[in-house]
Design a protein around this nucleic acid. Sequence first.
DNA 1: TGCCATTATGCTTTCGTATGCACAACGGGT
DNA 2: ACCCGTTGTGCATACGAAAGCATAATGGCA
Lengths: 340, 340
Amino acid sequence: MRKGVGMAVTSRDVARLAGVSQPTVSRALRDDPRVSEATKRSVREAADLLGYVPSDAGRALSSGRTHRIGLLVTDLENQFYAQIIAPVHLELERMGYQLMLHTETADNETVAERLIANGLDGVILATTTVDSIAPLRLRDRGLPFVYFNRTASFVDADATVVAPAAGFGQAAARAVSLGHRHIGAVLGPSNTSTAQSREIALRAALAQHGLALDPQNVRRGPFDTHSGDEATTSLLAQDSPPTLIFCGNDVVAYGALNAARRAGVSVPEDVSIIGFDDLPAASWPIIELSTIAYDFAEMAREAARLVTHRIEQADAPIAHIEFETAFIERRTLAAAAARV
Amino acid sequence: MRKGVGMAVTSRDVARLAGVSQPTVSRALRDDPRVSEATKRSVREAADLLGYVPSDAGRALSSGRTHRIGLLVTDLENQFYAQIIAPVHLELERMGYQLMLHTETADNETVAERLIANGLDGVILATTTVDSIAPLRLRDRGLPFVYFNRTASFVDADATVVAPAAGFGQAAARAVSLGHRHIGAVLGPSNTSTAQSREIALRAALAQHGLALDPQNVRRGPFDTHSGDEATTSLLAQDSPPTLIFCGNDVVAYGALNAARRAGVSVPEDVSIIGFDDLPAASWPIIELSTIAYDFAEMAREAARLVTHRIEQADAPIAHIEFETAFIERRTLAAAAARV
DNA sequence: TGCCATTATGCTTTCGTATGCACAACGGGT
DNA sequence: ACCCGTTGTGCATACGAAAGCATAATGGCA
């Protein structure tokens, strides 16, 4: 950029007007205690007068900090991530950081490179698979990052995760008391830590009551509505379908509800559905989904705090923060229908 | 930043290894035709070997371009904006730009300042109110911006907007043919151009059939589910409620469906509901919302293209791009119930 | 009155990349 | 053999803010 017409006002211009040096302007505007109140006042006045706005690039280059945090997700249209973005954004802003959204496209290889190239101070990984190499790359670069919700195997790092045992324990107990014995599940992708931990928790909870998942009644697929729809359609098409279906998350459960409706199967009379996450729509009167809840907004904020803390104190001990779950019973869970 | 341990590899390091000057590295990696193929190859090799990643800040400072575009929204949890972010993000990425999400908080005054301070090349305004001053500030700064969906009064700029007339025309015709005469509406905030244009289009469409909105059957509120719920609850509580309710958008319509369900009013037997936007959930079997559709994903991509085009060619003529609408009939619209 | 501590400010350099300009090397045409 | 055009590379510097260090101004105390 060589001297355009609309060239921005720089700290040097402010300095000239205020009759001080450029470094003094820099210090005054950042409220450095070494600058006198009188000077600060006149500098601020000059800055206001000129409409001075510090250059992000200049500051970044000089200080080595961008105050930008990347949030890596795959599917922005997924309601779960939509719910996450807002609290992360707000919490980061509260702490003086800006959020940069990044999506993981097909070629996983370049994701870490793109994150690194973007001059981020830190990264929140929200859709890591257990076998992802991105964390390795970030670690090698020395770029601070935290796991949100999902974790990867190769590298340990700060993480906020869900502890699904309690929620599934309560749900299973209630389901058994309602007479459910033939239980199905639409699980998430087996290369995600969330799908893995939920599957383990579900199986353990059922085992408490002497029950097990019949492999015939288990489906796996991405955490999205379409996948839940397909899987449930296939489950319900069987000769003796399960009376209750646990879904990998709420978004999948919406798909399950759609599949049941399309198949003319009543919920909860013919089949009960249980989700996971307790998204806002789960409690809508037209949905009323039974689900396993936890404070995902707080979990998102915690991830934001973890990453900024890691940036500011690189040698802090690694923190794994678990969020407890609880079963929330709504319309979509009812007594098991007698089987034919 | 004064010489840390994990200091990043710079173009100078690459230059040293490749035995060329730093500017040659810069040119070689950007595929400048003035650099010989042989040199390019050896520079690329050296860069790979060292794991060189160009500094965003350095490039931004030197070139005066950040390749970052801000997207300004209010409510990230709103499904409409969630649907918008993905296409904008992808289209920008395709054109070599990064998306920065910004939210409008309570103090509108500082929004423009925050956008300007963030070293953006351009901005997409998605939630402007007609009386917003942000566009003025951006124009004064010379920061390129475009309106998405909504426009403001004070400043003209590139815009992508919806043309609601056709959609409402079709919907009204169909509604009338189904016997609807007492029609209500839950409109958006009157300081948004979208709420204004939809209200005008709706009234005009009804007028075609000699109908008008009874002020008693009109409610206004924010474009969210809660507001749609409240407004509809109040509409339905009247002595002779409307047989059909037009909602400001789909998210509002979801609220209307919830309100009806809670009030024990059947949709569409007792009341019909029509939305606007055709969000993915509108076509779900458990929802099946009649609505007015347009290609919002393409509209989002177009906004992305407009802003980058404006950046690259500041003196291009201002473009206003309209997206046509069409009525989509689903379960929530049926024949009007006979009135008591 | 002189010295030192403190406070406030300025000078200089740095961060990493990009670009205008100078210039070296090379080759072809006469 | 000379000139000139072309091609490829280097040099110097700009971009804007921040920070280390130097130093001027001030005040207190002996």
